[in-house]
Amino acid sequence: MTDAHHRKLERMYAAAPFNGYYSGDMKISEGAARLEIPIQDTFHHAAQAVHGTHYFKVLDDSCFFAAQSVVADVFLLTASFTLYFTRPIAGQRMAGEAKLVSETRTQLIAEGVVLDETGKICGRGSGLFARSRHRLEDLPGYG
């Protein structure tokens, strides 16, 4: 794929209304993606640790875009995702880093980690992604 495709994907990420809540910084390259977000007070559960939904957010998005980085015609869908929590997140930022590990005609698999601002791994995950019928060029931010 081209850098132009990767920059369009970054714009598509930024254009999605839900992603405005996170103020994330998405960087995409061939078969890889990194999403870094600031941790807000509203991310914490009652015990003052980052709630697991935010681990999933950075992992699903980074794995999705690692897979989408090699598909330029249609939008991918998350078909399944497995997430493991390994430690609480420390600091004020968190990141998901992912890479594409398998691609067939019908599905792609990406694996990633959640990192705290010190670089410690706080979670791991893998996603299975399938091609949809939605053309990328028709989607806000990409086309």
Rank of each mutant, 00 (worst) to 15 (best):
D3P: 14
D3A: 12
D3Y: 09
A4G: 11
H5M: 01
Y13I: 07
A15Q: 06
A15P: 04
P17E: 05
N19H: 03
Y21C: 15
Y22W: 11
G24Y: 01
D25S: 08
M26C: 05
K27Q: 13
S29P: 08
G31I: 06
R34C: 05
E36A: 04
I37T: 15
P38R: 03
I39V: 13
D41W: 11
H44M: 14
H44V: 08
H45L: 06
A49M: 15
G52Y: 06
G52K: 10
G52A: 12
G52M: 10
H54W: 15
K57F: 15
D61S: 15
C63A: 08
C63R: 09
F65H: 07
A66V: 02
S69D: 10
S69T: 12
D73Q: 14
L76M: 09
T78P: 07
F81K: 04
T82P: 10
L83I: 15
P88T: 07
P88Q: 04
P88C: 00
G91W: 02
G91F: 04
M94D: 00
V101M: 08
S102L: 12
T104E: 01
T106S: 12
Q107H: 14
L108P: 01
A110R: 05
A110I: 01
E111P: 04
E111N: 11
V114A: 02
E117C: 09
G119C: 06
I121V: 11
C122A: 08
S126M: 10
S126E: 09
L128D: 11
L128H: 12
F129I: 04
R131Q: 07
R131F: 11
S132D: 01
S132A: 00
D138N: 14
L139H: 01
L139R: 07
P140I: 12
G141E: 02
Y142G: 00
